[in-house]
Design a protein around this nucleic acid. Structure first.
Lengths: 208, 208
DNA sequence: ACCTGAACACCGTTCAAGT
DNA sequence: ACCTGAACACCGTTCAAGT
């Protein structure tokens, strides 16, 4: 049973971290987050073992929101439209949150919560992808993992021009989506990643 | 006329930075780079105003290599094959160099050398794209800027699984390339970025 | 002219001392 | 049981002192 001020501080820290990360990306400072939450710097490490862990917690929360959005699209009338909407929601998450964009490539998948969130996201993506495949409009060799990696790619393709052309990502989403369609599809040289490969992806090599 | 040891140190620093950045990405430390080059930490700032500037210099050099590769492909027999090869070379640059991957999104375009290099790259891409468009195989609304952003996207899509499935990027390159083809192309909701937009892209907002 | 290494302001993290 | 703020090891950067 946590103390009243402790759970209040924890919430304040998560809110502060969420805002700071969205605005400044992964190099948001612990000092600013603590100040914004109205606690001492040391208190941050009382609630979260490390900055990486705090980021993972926020990341998990964001992904959960996207999973929920995906689940609401499961029963949509047009499965192709539903898949496009899901990818749109995923990209909008990237554009709203600077840190999410960087974290998508850099976060340690070793973290069990991040892995679990990634798995749930891939499962939701696979449900929507399966329906789109079954409709015949999307090529049969595409998986939910592909879809997750590809909307991330579309988001990152447009990121360098994000301040200049804010909706450029729509161009690349639609272009990539054309690549997902069944008609005119050429065979792909490499199979889709397996669930094990998708989730178990190792961390960068430590300094040698 | 620079002193002999000075120009030797400069070369050593560039070589050291090149290796450290490729291995450790943008957070390669100045201390390690200096040690690897056999000079004191302060000497680094004698040759380069800042770490960012040193990174920009390396970045510029890498892009120049890619431009050269693109120019060698200008007279290839099959323009579609040539464009695919160019994009492949671009992605392989990302896979060889951790920092390049991160820098592609994060480097300040304000740096005039980086801007110039980006312009040359876009121009080379446009030449190859133009030939592929004229052949009728690639859709008419695609530009060189699109191609540069899209091979970067393919590289970054596969990055999280880079240690587990090293050639996964080939899957996404070919999938995106299917989206570039003229047959079965759907209209895109947003026009291609202009040269001005591509090069002038502003820097992230400073901390508020 | 250029190199050096001590110094500075920052960062994430730890921990003894408080309540 | 939790909070605090001083302390630590790191980082990029500066600069007086050397040659």
């Amino acid at each position: 049973m946590p103390r009243a001020d402790a759970s209040r501080n924890r919430r304040a820290l998560l809110d502060a971290a969420s805002a700071e990360l969205a605005a400044h990306g992964l190099d948001a400072s612990i000092a600013r987050i603590a100040a914004r939450a109205g606690v001492a710097k040391g208190t941050v490490f009382n609630h979260f073992p490390s900055k990486e862990d705090l980021v993972a917690e926020i990341f998990e929360d964001r992904v959960a929101g996207l999973v929920a959005a995906g689940e609401r699209l499961r029963d949509a009338a047009d499965p192709v439209e539903a898949l496009l909407r899901f990818m749109t929601a995923g990209i909008e998450l990237h554009t709203r949150d600077r840190s999410f964009c960087q974290a998508a490539g850099a976060i340690p998948r070793a973290d069990p919560r991040v892995r679990a969130a990634s798995e749930r996201l891939a499962r939701t993506a696979e449900e929507l992808t399966g329906r789109a495949r079954d409709s015949g409009a999307v090529r049969p060799d595409i998986t939910g993992h592909d879809v997750v990696l590809l909307f991330t790619a579309a988001a990152q393709a447009a990121t360098p021009l994000g301040d200049t052309v804010p909706d450029l990502w729509r161009r690349y989403l639609h272009l990539i989506f054309d690549g997902l369609r069944a008609d005119g599809a050429h065979p792909l040289p490499v199979p889709a990643p397996t669930t094990a490969q998708f989730t178990a992806a190792a961390r960068a090599t430590p300094a040698g």
